[in-house]
Amino acid sequence: MAKKSIKVRAKHKDGVTTVKALMTHPMESGLRKNSKGEAIPAHFIQEVVCEVGGNMVMNAHWSGGVSKNPYLSFKFDGGQGQTLKLTWTDNKGESDSIESAIG
């Protein structure tokens, strides 16, 4: 998987950090067929993990029912001045991660 597959924006306001992330990924469910009627192999992100200061904040598990080029947003307390790390791993074992300062 190409690097820089993740865009992330993490903003801190009034004690709460809001994370918005956009990942580039085909998210093939394995349930679709191509024009020849052959099954298109499954290829989707299974897991997204967010850590802040070494602590896990959010751990998402996905099926191929999440849309192509997935968008994700979540919130947590604190985070001011810290760095966030977001990592995805797909069903083929490929993964990518990004670190971003919380603004």
């Binding site: 349930l31 959010m58 751990n59 849309s67 968008y71 994700l72």
Partner: peptide
């Protein structure tokens, strides 16, 4: 979850360390 989908379970988000009960995503 989307019960009318062939695989109804779409996504699950586990929270820790002060995460809020909030999740936003896009589903098929």
């Amino acid at each position: 979850a989307a019960p009318n989908n062939p695989a109804p379970l779409v996504a699950s988000f586990d929270f820790a360390s002060g995460a809020h009960g909030y999740a936003s995503t896009r589903i098929k």
